[in-house]
Design a protein around this nucleic acid. Sequence first.
DNA 1: AGCTGTGGCAGGGAGG
DNA 2: CCTCCCTGCCAC
Length: 787
Amino acid sequence: MIELLHGQRPVPIDKESEASLLGIDPEERIIGAWMPQPPGTRIVVYQKVKGELVERLDPLTFYFHLSDRRLLDECPEDFVVVELDGEGAFKYCVLFDSLSKMWNAVRHVNRRIQAVPRPFPEQTDDMIHVEPDPVIQYFLQTGKTCFKGLEPEDLTILRVSIVTSSLSGYSNPERASDEVLAVALADSTGWRRVLSRKRKDEETLLRLFIDLVVERNPDIIEGYHLHTFEMPFLFHRCNRYRIEMSLGRDGSNAYLPAGQPRDQRRAQIPEIHGRHLIDLSRCVSGGMPGDRTRGQTGLVRAVRAAGLDRPDRVVLDPRQLSWCYQHDYHRFEQFLHDNLTDLELLSERFTRFHFEMTRMLPLNYQQVPVTGSARKIDLLMEREYMHHNHALPAPSSGALRTGGLTGVFACGVFNHILHVDVESLYPSLMLSRRIKPRSDVHGMFLSLLEKLTDLRLDIKRRMMSMSECPEKENLGVLQSAYKILINSFFGYLAYPPALFNDFERAEEVTRTGQEILRQVVTELKNAGAEIIEIDTDGVFAIPPPGIDTEQDEQKLVKDISALLPERITLGFAGRYEKMFSYKIKNYALQTYDKKLIIRGSSLHSRSMERFARDFIRDCIECILRNDFQALHGLYTSLIFDIRNHKIHIRDLARTEEVKIPLHQYLEELKHEQRKHSGLMEAIGRAGRPVSVGERISYYYTGQTLPSKPYTATKLAELWDPNFPDANVPWYQKRVRDLAEKFRPFFEPEDFQQVFSDEEGLFPIDNQAITLRMLREEPPDFTSDQEQ
DNA sequence: AGCTGTGGCAGGGAGG
DNA sequence: CCTCCCTGCCAC
């Protein structure tokens, strides 16, 4: 632990000198040699909670030594202290804020030098030399705890939402006109306060805010986009007035952690001594039912997606906020109260997983939601190996060459669709075939996977046994968060930086996964089903004749499942009235209660203009209804609306995220490292400051099709309804291109007639048009189907 | 400094 | 026009 003693950040160690210090071969590296323990030592962990020292038992903490018992009494509130009780106790002292800091140092050493698994050596007294003071200093720096043995109720949570005055609706703390208009605060004891600029200036408001936070003394501060909006904004504004942002428990200022940010896209997370900053937008992603995207959304949309919205919730567009503040303050205040309520609801539903992981991982709470799955698995493995006093392997190099099996067998519109999938294909395969990393000599990988799976299934069972209630939803989110972690065990195998990666085993998983799916397809075909599309672990099919009810389908699924290898089960994933199969990974489903589900980036994508998304959705609806007359109407009216500038800019514009600062873009353009970008050119022309990570809307202007489209872009906020200047030919071409997607499903004359700009001489006869269905055997299947 | 994987479609820029 | 390549987004 040499690094930790000399500073806050790991410093490179000279390989030879450390090897001689430890008396080992310099080519080998033994992790843990610097934290020996006398055998049979009993570890006692104390945590100071509300002034009381509480004893906790925790196998994680056995690396830490305590030199002086008195420190127990002197340590600040909520700090974790470890005591060794037994022979040689109190010899050394390491107080710590988070095990992760220590573990990072371990990893750092481990990665620098090729590690070979080897048993822990006999301990001698002179192997380590720990001076307590710098470590305590290090601990005091952030003062965060691991929450081991704590329940959420033991902690005070403060929720924060701020509103700024920004004419454009895009806040920029560096722009003088963008000020903090109001701050809303609520804590878990029921205390609430809205600070506004009504009777004070911004500086007074900011000072009041800081005083209130210190007074409420929360363990956790929560917000939605707290890391990317609230904290940086408050940071900048305080800076402007030279106000010390002294929010720390020890009176210290909020600060940005040392070190350069990984890339400019990702904002650095500020730190506050002794408090955990939780950005709920980071907790929500992945836990949303039916939402796999990581794309960020606003608070209101997130709450709506979680089904937690209330009918009387005040919704204000960012652009309306300033106006509302001045002219309808009551409504404005209600909006802030609704924000606070939303934060409470989201917190209740989405933080539980992260809280539980904090007790499982050597990470403090603040770090968990921003830590990826692969790293979590790495930390779990490290934890187990440390527990076994065993060194860790170094990552191996290689690459995974195969993935899931995919294919379309039929395109077009089909009725009565059965969707089946192999339940948790990859994790089940790893467990049933005992696929584990070669370097995992203790076999921890599979036991972790098994434990987490049991944990998840237990939560799921509890959930299933409940009647509809918020807690049931909470458990649903919790089990799906565990599912994501469980599914990452496969990704971990093929992840280059993972300590226990193993590309051959990953290959084995994908290969056997393909075999299983092939087997499912074969059995479905043997039963007389027609296969529409397959993807990795799921099949869309038309059930065989005679299989009509859901009960029939369930039985079919069960029968086929019985033919699969042990512990691999085929599940019933859904049934649909209709399916529009467009291309692989791109399809639409109509449920029996007439709901339309659209999947795939070519039919539904955030990069598409809203009018395009709506148009495609409407087209699919018409096609599923066989209503080609309406389809023709959709097309012609859209062409007409574009010609007459009847489309609102919100529907017309494309929205993209700003990836790099404008100056960097221009620089890279100059050196031909980058191609022109429509978005960046529009930003350059508008001359307004934008921050990296902002999502900006733009559209195309002009009278003719531009030869270089990026020269014709313009920010949507500059659009003037009185002088609409959208490029008519460009957007009409866009509509024609969208219509092209449907050409393969029509006879040429029919397509011509339905998607013609002009009204035809005769109205379209829905009965006269029959959609084409395209069937083909994907090449991978033609060979082994016959055998 | 930290990051789970592959497969697939669409669109735009750049150059022929 | 076309092809090639890169990026973004999505399904699993």
